[in-house]
Amino acid sequence: MQGVSVSSLAALASGGSCRAVSLFKDYLKLLNRSGINPMVDGSCFGRQCMLRLYSINTNRARRLDSRIGATWLFSGGGKKMDASIERSEATNEEIVVFFFQLDLETRIQYALNTEQFDVAQQLRNKLNEVETEIIKQQEAKRGSSRSEAQDKALNLLRLRADLQKAIDNEKYVVAAKLRDEISKLEVESLAASAKALAYENAQYAYRLGEKVRHKIFGYRAVICGMDPICCESSSWMGIANVEKLSQGPNQPFYQVLVDVHDDPNLLVAYVAEENLSATEKPDLTRFDHPYVSFLFYGTDTTGDFIPIKQLREKFSRPRHEVPSMDTQDGNEDDNI
């Protein structure tokens, strides 16, 4: 059986949608040769996900990207800006890998249920590769983990000890170089510690599955992911003009699915917390997006979406319980 290599998955993290489409093709070979089709009526989870994810023509996406740059240069700003400036290929590809992981888990269980143990083992090996690569991508996305901050702190101690030895031995040229290295590393260490602290103590105004509205562009969206700080590339932040935000990149950023009726070309965006607002009243109106059936069970009584367990675990978010609607009635009974 032929599968997807780790290098193919690694390309997803830094490449565009073309590389993800290449992964999709390799994955189809894996599915076709495995002979496993656990979904009802012959439908394939992975096929549906990928076909929906890449239904937008790549050339059209490139034209939109070109238009983004012109928008920032020549528009007057504010509501005249193009919402596509917040389109995120990285977020889109992260969802692809998440779908891929879910589908492999489903197929492994199906293979075990049908006693196809050899196939299940081969699929499990592929799942291990995918999960390993996901961990690497998460660490790269986080940028500065606690271990990195600790490593920089240890390097500082070592450099300071070397500096003292150089001074004691009257090697002042070496001491000057070490002093410059220490100054640079102190800045990096402070930034690493700040980012690690941000990940550990992140506070979010919005939750997974919550319906929100963009303050500038006005479209409706639903939260499908979150980061304590902006984890996009510097080039993306330049296009999105993140430095002009009142809180800059050091605020929560959300992966959102955009209602196709509001903007059929955007689909997935990466939005700063300050640019989102919650609905004042329960939003029970229809929300259409090709990804919602895979990421959410459905909607609750307030109209917000209910995230699947795997999505909550991915972002370490607790299950949201809808407040009881009969609290007020109970108070009235007490008063009576």
Rank of each mutant, 00 (worst) to 15 (best):
M1Q: 11
A10F: 08
L12W: 01
C18L: 03
R19P: 03
R19L: 04
G35K: 03
V40S: 03
S43C: 10
C44M: 12
F45N: 04
R47W: 04
R47S: 00
R52G: 11
N59Y: 12
A61D: 06
R63Q: 13
R67D: 09
A70R: 06
W72M: 15
A83G: 09
I85E: 00
R87E: 05
A90S: 03
T91Y: 01
N92V: 07
F100W: 03
Q101M: 04
D103N: 07
L104E: 06
E105A: 14
E105D: 14
T106F: 04
I108V: 14
Q109T: 01
A111N: 06
Q122L: 06
N125V: 05
N125L: 05
E129W: 04
R142A: 05
S144T: 07
K152H: 14
L156N: 04
R158K: 13
K165P: 14
A166N: 08
K171W: 15
V173S: 15
V173A: 15
A175M: 10
A175W: 04
A176N: 10
K184A: 09
K184E: 12
K184Q: 10
A191C: 01
A191K: 11
A196D: 05
A202R: 08
A202D: 02
Y204N: 05
R207Y: 12
G209K: 07
R213H: 15
V222K: 06
G225H: 09
P228T: 01
V242C: 05
V242R: 00
L245T: 03
G248H: 15
L257K: 04
V260A: 05
D263T: 13
D263F: 09
L267R: 06
V268N: 06
A269D: 03
Y270R: 08
V271R: 00
T285L: 13
H289F: 03
T302K: 02
G303W: 00
R312P: 00
D334V: 11
